[in-house]
Computed example of a mutant assay.
Amino acid sequence: MKVLVTGLNGTLAPKLAALLRQQGHEVLAWQRDVLDVNNEAAGRDWLDAQGVQAVAHLAMGDAHWAGWMAWWAAQRGLPFVFTSTAMVFHHEPDGPHQVGDATTAQDDYGRGKALCEQAVRRAHPHAVVARIGWQIDLTATGNNMLRALDDWQARDGRIGASTLWRPACSFMDDTVAALAQCLRLDGASSSPHTPAGLIHLDSNAQEGWNFAQVAEALGQAAGRAWRVVPEAGYAHDQRLMPGEGQGVVLPGLGGRLGGAR
């Protein structure tokens, strides 16, 4: 199948694209320097001309772009997946956050993602909106937790890690496997295990590791000599609890980090 994956200049989307190609699908990219995301007519014509059969929207962008692409996919009965973020929730009220909780973001990024969620869900009744947390990749390339902690250690000579923060987080390969399942490229749209609607993808949801524990275990798994200093810092139970029957749940952190806490 031909799958449009937006955000291929980022970190997560290229990994999803690689997995889809391994599964035998053709991946198409949106080139913003060629096609203006705000030009709906040109965008729809291009999508039709390319024969796009599913859309995974991982790129940064506004609600207008997300909404009209979701509408285009809905009119053609095509799968549409949008990645949102744990940042749609503020630390007040605290989590863990349920699928049905009202979004409470106070910053522009979180508010923007919440608006995109609303636009996608209005436009496409069968779209999947997948909220994800901080991504982990042991190659330390791109925007991910390992790279950030490497930079933190290099800058400060230590990593001050809050014991009061339980982050939403997962390994990238687990996340992209779940997103690929959400695209329903096998045609199993009626399966009871098929994700639909708003879902939460968080490997820390059930185990509830605090950030100091995650940093310590990740440093060991990656062979880093970080100086992790537990402290009573940022306080937020940010975990994204999966909805009942959502169809896909990520493996826990313990299985990826050796269970060390």
Rank of each mutant, 00 (worst) to 15 (best):
K2C: 06
T6A: 02
A13W: 00
K15Y: 12
L16H: 07
A18N: 05
A18L: 06
L19S: 01
Q23D: 15
E26W: 08
A29S: 11
R32P: 08
R32G: 05
V34A: 13
L35M: 12
G43M: 05
R44V: 12
A49S: 14
Q53K: 09
A54W: 04
G67K: 08
G67P: 07
A70L: 04
W72F: 01
A73N: 12
G77D: 13
L78H: 04
F80P: 07
V81Q: 06
S84P: 02
D94Q: 13
P96L: 07
Q98R: 14
V99M: 10
D101R: 06
D101F: 04
T104K: 03
A105E: 09
A105T: 09
Y109D: 06
R111M: 12
G112N: 10
A114G: 13
A119G: 01
R121H: 07
A123I: 10
H124W: 11
G133M: 09
G133P: 12
Q135R: 07
D137V: 00
L146R: 07
L146N: 03
R147L: 08
L149M: 14
A154W: 11
R155L: 14
G157E: 09
A161D: 08
F171M: 01
M172Q: 01
T175R: 01
V176P: 08
A178K: 02
L179S: 14
A188Q: 14
S191R: 12
P192W: 05
A196N: 09
D202H: 11
N204R: 01
N210I: 02
A212H: 08
Q213M: 04
V214A: 14
A215K: 09
G223C: 02
A225P: 13
R227I: 08
V228K: 10
E231L: 15
Y234R: 12
Q246Y: 07
L250S: 01
P251M: 01
P251R: 00
G252T: 08
R256A: 01
G259K: 04
